[in-house]
Design a protein around this nucleic acid. Structure first.
Lengths: 193, 193
DNA sequence: TGGTACATGTACCACATGGTACGCTAGAGG
DNA sequence: CCTCTAGCGTACCATGTGGTACATGTACCA
């Protein structure tokens, strides 16, 4: 199979390198020497440069999915933002946006990336909202807006590093939502502390 | 000077090519043959590959600024979104996000790109809001949230192509804003048609 | 006419790239 | 002991890269 100890070790190192240096302009020799191996080995384990690219993207996708599971279950939008805005996730998010723009150009290895990164976040939220009695179409719009706010503010945060400012903007958003659908149990029932 | 007719012609063609094919992985020969010249000419006019890159980024920045002027003056958030969501701007926005992620890595020629693309949009909005009597800090948070919503939904739109869905989400946002600060003249006084 | 500055074409260079051929080692299983 | 396989190193190859040298063209001005 395409998975062995050695391969996994290299893949993790490669992802680590991508987190720090991006996924673009990565030459086999560059990354190989950076992670302490030879470009020969990368080709041996991943068949080609593109194979490595695909593997890295898949792994990032997997980690993104894990982040999703760890955060979307958090009740309370504020807590969700707090988690996503944590500095330990910055590298992952930066790489996410990088791959996202690659995927927008349909580059190899990014099939399904956009769909998954959209529906992956939307559907659980929509599901929990419709379960709470919200109209399906409304739920979708709310989820979509929430995702947009999150991503937009993450872009801001990555560029400005202004955690306080972006958090303030996010707080404003949750406040707007709460005002619209008063404290009756809804999907945004985070306690204001 | 670094600007001549020939150079401008090449620059525009190069930007056109970047709009269609991205700015990454662009080799001098590739783009040269695509726009009907030789890589020799690109180096002649832009000194180096990096010089060309920088020039392209600057030009995109300039166009972005123009888009900003054309849209931010529109009164009514809805009309603003309608303009930005127009298919004719898709390529420019896709390239914008591509350069944005480059800039997040501090790649050459992107100095000031992030700052400008943040403050460029925020300050005019903030200015018009404070002029209307809104508290400075509040205004900043609102503007920031609005920008985030716009960018997040653009990312959604670029990936999904779902103009109706993203517009619905944006409508929801404007509604939330209006509900929060009722139809007293505020910065979001777009008429709902 | 000659010159001068911009523009362009041809040919080339050194180098980095992705990929391959081949050989070596270590360990497992018979 | 022999064999087989996974893992790896060395050396190589053809190709594409950014960049340069040099000659040519072309227009305008004196």
């Amino acid at each position: 199979m395409a998975t062995s100890q050695a391969r996994n070790r290299l893949l993790n190192a490669a992802v680590e390198h991508a987190l720090n240096h991006g996924i673009v302009d990565l030459s086999l020799r560059e990354i190989a020497s950076a992670i302490g191996t030879s470009h020969r080995m990368l080709i041996y384990h991943f068949a080609s440069r593109e194979g490595l690219l695909v593997a890295v993207v898949r792994e990032v996708e997997r980690r993104e999915r894990q982040t999703l599971e760890n955060t979307v279950s958090l009740d309370g939008a504020r807590r969700l933002w707090g988690r996503l805005a944590d500095p330990s996730l910055r590298d992952q998010e930066r790489l996410f946006f990088e791959i996202y723009s690659h995927a927008l150009r349909g580059r190899p290895g990014t099939d399904g990336f956009l769909e998954e990164s959209l529906e992956g976040w939307l559907s659980p939220v929509i599901k929990s909202m419709t379960a709470a009695g919200v109209d399906e179409s409304d739920a979708r719009a709310i989820a979509r807006l929430g995702l947009a706010v999150t991503r937009g503010l993450l872009l801001d945060l990555l560029a400005s590093g202004d955690g306080a400012g972006t958090t303030q903007a996010f707080e404003l958003f949750t406040t707007l939502l709460e005002q619209a659908s008063p404290p009756s149990r809804s999907v945004t029932h985070g306690d204001p502390r």
